[in-house]
Amino acid sequence: MQWNWQQADWPNFTYDVENLALLEQKFLQSSGEVIGAVRHFSEDDSSQLRIELLSDEAVKTSEIEGEFLDRASVQSSLRQQFGLNTDGRPVRPQERGIAEMMADVYQHWSGSLHHEELFHWHSMLMAGNRHIETIGAYRRHDDAMQIVSGRLDKPTIHFEAPPSRQVGPEMELFVDWFNRSGPSGQAPLPAVTRAAIGHLYFESIHPFEDGNGRIGRALAEKSLAQNIGQPSLISLAYTIEGNRKTYYSELERHQRKLDITGWVIYFSNTILEAQQATIDRIAFFIQKAKFYDRFRGRLNERQQKVIARIFREGITGFKGGLSAENYISITATSRATATRDLQQLVEIGALTRTGERRHTRYALQLQEVRQSNVR
């Protein structure tokens, strides 16, 4: 099996430019919608939205790699990074590290890419990690860097990256390509095309012992931000995690060849889905603010706790809908009190009710946000 980096023309990727023109146009249009929506927020609301979107990205980019983090702890660390008030909760090194990296990408998107920046991100991600030899530098081990699955005695090799001795020269070429392909570089590329190529290129070198996927997605964020002239706030990892089997399948398929038209189209469409997810989540954020404005001072402590818990589930809502049993579990109250609280929430228009008896479920009653409000 010959991998892309073993082929004579590496790293000269080829792709069909004509197939990408409409995707590039849609990306720029959707970027305008996101930028326009955020501009209508107050400073406090804008800060809260930024924390929510970045924390979700931090959690999801880690989940893609099989690492599960506490969202509240990530948010607390992000708030500290942006100089905002925190709740003082304890934060594990891995949660602090991913929050620091996400904040760094957000704050320093405009600068040229340097090896030191990548090393800095890696050091943040690997904080507290005792299982790898090299932190804050490219890998040096002699063993082959392989992506494998299956049995230990008969593994399936999905990809094998260049040996460690080649990583330094390969990354010199990659960093040079990244900077030359930027909007102010000598060979600028359109936004989604550049992000797609850059992600596959970086993942194919796989320069670190661990953390390559998370750093590769951070590079895509930096690339897109440079092309639109400000942080994208795009829900890229949030979208990829929803269908990560396809993500890994497309990566594996296109790490065997240099014609990457299929990859660029796939990744471009993923970026567009991620933009729409961001737009939808901004609308949800507005709905949340309007909900609390409508019912300010009308909810008791138990009801406030449950409503906050439902909102934490995000756009998808409480899995299966809120039941009386859920309410009792969250508030540690009696069934009679839960029944009265839920009935009152329905009467004032805070919740809707469906089903009967043990099948009764409750959902938030949110006001629809017009598209003009998020453009």
Results as ranks from 00 to 15, higher is better:
Y266E: 08
D44H: 08
I260E: 05
F284V: 05
R298Q: 14
R139A: 09
P163V: 06
E116L: 11
G320P: 01
L53G: 00
F295G: 02
V148S: 13
R294Q: 10
E43V: 13
E160S: 11
D176G: 04
K222D: 00
R140M: 06
P207H: 00
I282P: 01
G32I: 03
D210C: 09
Q80L: 06
S73N: 08
H359A: 14
L152A: 15
E160M: 10
N227K: 07
P90G: 08
P207E: 03
Q29Y: 14
P11K: 08
Q186V: 13
A283D: 11
T360I: 11
G32D: 03
G83R: 13
H122W: 02
T246H: 13
V369W: 06
I310G: 07
W3H: 05
T337Y: 02
G32L: 05
G88W: 01
E43P: 00
H254P: 00
L236G: 00
L173C: 10
P188D: 09
M1G: 14
F318E: 04
G349W: 10
R357K: 15
W121G: 00
I282A: 05
Y106I: 02
T316D: 14
Q29L: 13
S184N: 12
F291M: 05
Q6L: 08
A187K: 15
E117F: 06
P163M: 07
I157C: 14
I260C: 08
Y362Q: 01
R96V: 01
Q7S: 10
I98C: 04
T352G: 11
S223N: 05
A324N: 12
L152N: 08
V148M: 14
R214Y: 02
S30L: 14
D280P: 02
V74T: 04
A336P: 00
E172M: 12
K222N: 00
H120E: 10
M145I: 09
F159I: 05
Y201H: 14
D259K: 11
I282W: 03
F119R: 10
R89F: 03
Q29D: 06
I307Y: 02
Y327E: 01
L20W: 11
R375F: 06
R139M: 09
Q146N: 11
I51V: 15
Q186E: 15
I234H: 01
S372R: 12
H359T: 10
P188C: 11
E95I: 07
F295V: 05
F284N: 09
G185M: 09
E252T: 15
H141R: 13
F41A: 09
A274V: 04
Q365E: 13
M126S: 04
